[in-house]
Amino acid sequence: MATSLVTTTATAVPGTPVPSTAAGRSRTALPLTLGIIGVLLLAAASMFVGVSDVTLPKLIAGDTNAWDILLISRVPRTIAVILAGMALAVAGLIMQQMARNRFVEPSMVGTVESAMLGILAVTIFLPATPVLGKMGVAAVAALVGTWIFLTIISRLPTRNTLLVPLVGIMLGGVISAITTFFAYRYDLLQTLNTWMIGDFSGVLRGRYELLWIVAALTLIGYLAADRFTVAGMGADFTTNLGLNYRTIMRLGMSIVALITAVVVVTVGAIPFLGLVVPNLVSLIFGDNLRKAVPWTAVFGAGIVLVCDIISRTIRYPYEVPVSMVMGVIGASFFLVMLIRQRAKNRL
């Protein structure tokens, strides 16, 4: 527990655009606009990274080949990256509020694992199901998995900071083991990998549009931001303020499960994103979700854009899956954050 009475300005991370003490709306709107511009610049850069030659002069010259590549592959891919990045980060944030723990995210508490088990079950028993149907089953499975996790942690005798993620990892491990077992038996391990390892290389026009669903879910998350903040303060606080805790939890679980299902089915799981981004945002801007949700979306989109550009250039002309880049960057990011936090004695 922090007992320091000294007025430090340690809340702002060096190099951040705005001190965390900024309260006025106008003072927070400008940095956010700059953040959005940053994401758009990254998105623009992303359009010109790849094996096929797409350059500004060629586009201006009206090269139909370049325009085709841009419109069929690069633009859809960039949009997919932004949507998935935004939504997964916000899903992580909402998950952390519901679990009241900073160290959880959907891919480490059984949500993603359950979604994969759901898709696997559909693939085995009803292989002809259309994508939307698979998504639906994945979402229901993810919802059940999330519910199991939240139920377990609500019954834990102590609310130890590290016990909660541990329980999640164990639950995820159990579900994952079941999935792998059946995938092995039905010779579907390779298919399983496409969901497990997030990768934007397969994104083409006509094959990613379902991802727009997560944009709507992220917006709902923003509109309910105050409610999630209140829920993050606990059931008693929520009840005292006249809100129904269970209703908020149901809404949160639904948003998290749906986002997870849609992203896993369309591009595959991206680890650490939901963990790193909300923690970073919390460190700089705090946990009032009204403020944190937009920033989480901006940082989420930005970080995945950077990772996707790296994944396309690091072994050029080959690609590595974005989830691997995210894994490396995310893990090191998180390690730094943990050490910083310990140094500040706030764990």
Binding site: S20, T21, A23, R100, N101, R102, T161, D226, T229, V230, G232, M233, D236, F237, T239, N240, L241, G242, L243, N244, S282, L283, G286, D287, N288
Partner: peptide
Amino acid sequence: ASRDLAKKMAILRQENHLTMRLSVRDLVGF
């Protein structure tokens, strides 16, 4: 209705180990 009760009475429990980073003004605002 809980919302109507919330305008009539307020309760503060003893265990308030808030792990969230909320500004004091935001907390009071809630």
